[in-house]
Structures are given as C-alpha cells and as structure tokens.
Lab assay of single mutants.
Amino acid sequence: KVILLEDVKGLGKKGDVVEVKDGYARNFLIPQGLAVEATKGNLKEL
C-alpha cells in the first residue's frame, strides 16, 4: 500500500491510500515523488 502525494490518473487523488504492485510503487511512484509507503508513521501524518 502507498499514500499518494499527488493526484495520479487512474489510481486516485492526493492523500488516498491505495494498493499497488510492489514493483510499480518502488520503480515508478516513489522515485517520481508521487507516493510514499503506507507505514504506520506515514498514516499518522495524514
């Protein structure tokens, strides 16, 4: 699961917690600054 930092077409809006494949999160969303891993600490910051 990841928390979206920006609106991502076809996935969700900023602040949404979405389930995506590990590779998509690690190789695209997180490096592009579009999402962060949905850890307990990150979820509390919402």
Rank of each mutant, 00 (worst) to 15 (best):
Asn42Phe: 05
Val8Tyr: 05
Leu4Thr: 00
Val8Trp: 04
Gly10Thr: 07
Glu6Ile: 13
Gly41Leu: 11
Lys44Glu: 15
Thr39Asn: 11
Ile30Gln: 02
Gly33Ala: 07
Val36Asp: 04
Glu6Val: 13
Gln32Glu: 09
Glu45Phe: 05
Asp7Cys: 11
Lys1Asn: 08
Tyr24Glu: 05
Leu34Phe: 10
Leu5Asp: 00
Ile30His: 02
Leu5Ile: 10
Val20Leu: 04
Gly10Val: 03
Glu19Leu: 13
Leu29Lys: 01
Lys21Tyr: 12
Glu37Phe: 15
Ala38Phe: 12
Gly12Leu: 00
Ala25Ile: 06
Lys40Gln: 15
Gly15Lys: 03
Lys13Asn: 09
Lys9Val: 12
Gly33Glu: 05
Leu4Gly: 00
Asp16Ala: 10
Val20Tyr: 02
Asp7Glu: 11
Val18Pro: 01
Lys9Trp: 14
Glu6Asp: 10
Asp16His: 06
Ala35Glu: 01
Pro31Lys: 15
Lys44Asn: 15
Gly12Ser: 01
Glu37Arg: 11
Asp7Met: 08
Lys13Val: 08
Val8Asp: 00
Asp16Gln: 12
Gly41Ile: 09
Glu37Asp: 09
Leu43Ala: 04
Ala35Trp: 01
Gly15His: 09
Lys13Met: 10
Arg26Gln: 08
Ala38Glu: 08
Val17Pro: 02
Ala25Val: 06
Val8Asn: 01
Val8Ile: 11
Lys40Ile: 15
Ile3Lys: 07
Lys44Ile: 13
Arg26Asn: 07
Tyr24Asp: 04
Arg26Lys: 08
Asp16Asn: 07
Leu4Ala: 00
Val17Asn: 04
Leu5Asn: 03
Glu37Thr: 07
Asp22Met: 11
Asp7Ile: 05
Val17Trp: 06
Gly41His: 14
Lys1Pro: 07
Phe28Ile: 06
Ala38Leu: 06
Val17Gln: 07
Thr39Glu: 08
Glu37Lys: 09
Lys1Ala: 10
Tyr24Val: 08
Ala38Met: 08
Lys9Met: 12
Gly12Thr: 00
Gly33Tyr: 05
Ala38Gln: 06
Leu43Arg: 03
Asn42Cys: 07
Gly23Leu: 11
Gly33Arg: 10
Pro31Glu: 13
Gly41Glu: 15
Gly10Tyr: 12
Lys14Arg: 13
Leu34Ile: 10
Val36Trp: 05
Ala25Cys: 05
Gly33Met: 09
Glu45Asp: 15
Lys14Thr: 07
Leu11Pro: 00
Lys44Leu: 15
Gly23Gln: 11
Glu19Pro: 06
Gly41Thr: 14
Lys21Ser: 14
Glu19Arg: 12
Asp22Asn: 12
Lys13Gly: 07
Leu43Glu: 12
Pro31Tyr: 15
Thr39His: 07
Phe28Met: 05
Leu43Cys: 14
Glu19Gln: 10
Arg26Thr: 08
Arg26Glu: 05
Leu43Trp: 04
Lys1Arg: 14
Lys40Tyr: 15
Gly10Phe: 12
Asp16Pro: 00
Gly12Phe: 01
Glu6Cys: 11
Asn42Glu: 08
Leu43Thr: 06
Gly12Ala: 02
Phe28Ser: 03
Val18Glu: 01
Lys14Glu: 04
Phe28Leu: 05
Ala35Asp: 01
Lys9Tyr: 15
Ala25Gln: 03
Ala25Trp: 08
Ile30Lys: 03
Glu19Ser: 10
Leu11Ala: 02
Leu4Val: 01
Lys13Ala: 11
Asp7Gln: 06
Gly12Gln: 01
Ile3Val: 10
Gly15Asp: 05
Asp7Val: 05
Val18Ile: 11
Gln32Ala: 13
Asp22Lys: 11
Gly23Asn: 13
Ile3Thr: 05
Leu5Glu: 02
Leu43Asn: 09
Leu29Thr: 01
Val2Ser: 01
Asn42Asp: 10
Thr39Ala: 06
Lys21Val: 14
Val20Ser: 03
Leu11Phe: 10
Leu4Lys: 00
Leu43Val: 05
Tyr24Ala: 03
Glu19Thr: 11
Asp22Ser: 15
Lys1Trp: 13
Leu11Gln: 02
Ala25His: 03
Lys14Phe: 04
Lys21Trp: 13
Pro31Trp: 15
Ala35Gly: 06
Asp16Phe: 08
Leu5Thr: 08
Val36Tyr: 08
Leu34Tyr: 10
Gly15Ser: 04
Lys21Arg: 14
Lys40Asn: 12
Leu46Thr: 14
Gly41Pro: 09
Leu34Val: 08
Ala35Pro: 01
Ile30Gly: 02
Val2Trp: 15
Lys21Asp: 11
Val18His: 02
Glu37Cys: 13
Glu6Arg: 15
Glu37Gln: 10
Gln32Ile: 06
Val17Lys: 06
Leu46Val: 13
Val20Pro: 03
Gly23Met: 13
Lys1Ser: 11
Lys13Ile: 10
Ala35His: 01
Ala38Ile: 05
Lys40Glu: 15
Val20His: 01
Asp7Phe: 11
Val2Asp: 00
Gln32Pro: 02
Ala25Gly: 07
Tyr24Met: 06
Asp7Leu: 06
Val8Lys: 02
Thr39Leu: 07
Gly41Tyr: 03
Gly41Val: 12
Val36Thr: 07
Gly33Pro: 00
Asp22Thr: 14
Lys13Asp: 05
Lys40Ala: 15
Val17Ile: 08
Leu5Pro: 01
Ala35Thr: 01
Val2Asn: 01
Gly23Glu: 14
Lys1His: 10
Ile3Glu: 05
Val18Ser: 01
Phe28Lys: 04
Ala35Cys: 04
Lys9Ala: 13
Thr39Val: 06
Gly12Ile: 00
Lys13Leu: 12
Ile3Ala: 03
Glu6Lys: 14
Gly15Trp: 13
Gly33Asp: 03
Glu37Val: 11
Thr39Gly: 08
Lys40His: 13
Lys44Met: 13
Gly10Asp: 08
Asn42Pro: 06
Lys9Gly: 10
Asn27Trp: 15
Lys21Gln: 13
Ala25Thr: 04
Ile30Tyr: 11
Thr39Phe: 05
Ala25Phe: 09
Glu37Met: 13
Asn42Ser: 07
Leu29Tyr: 02
Gln32His: 10
Leu46Phe: 08
Tyr24Asn: 03
Pro31Ser: 15
Val17Phe: 06
Val20Cys: 10
Lys14Gly: 04
Val36Ser: 06
Leu5Ala: 03
Phe28Ala: 03
Gly33Gln: 09
Asp16Ser: 10
Gly23Ser: 12
Ala38Tyr: 14
Leu46Glu: 15
Asp7Arg: 09
Tyr24Thr: 05
Val18Lys: 05
Ala35Ile: 02
Gly12Asp: 00
Val20Thr: 07
Ala35Ser: 02
Gln32Ser: 11
Ala35Gln: 01
Lys9Gln: 11
Ile30Asp: 02
Ala35Arg: 00
Tyr24Ile: 07
Asn42Ala: 09
Asn27Thr: 12
Gly33Ser: 05
Leu46Tyr: 09
Ala38Val: 05
Lys21Asn: 13
Ala35Tyr: 02
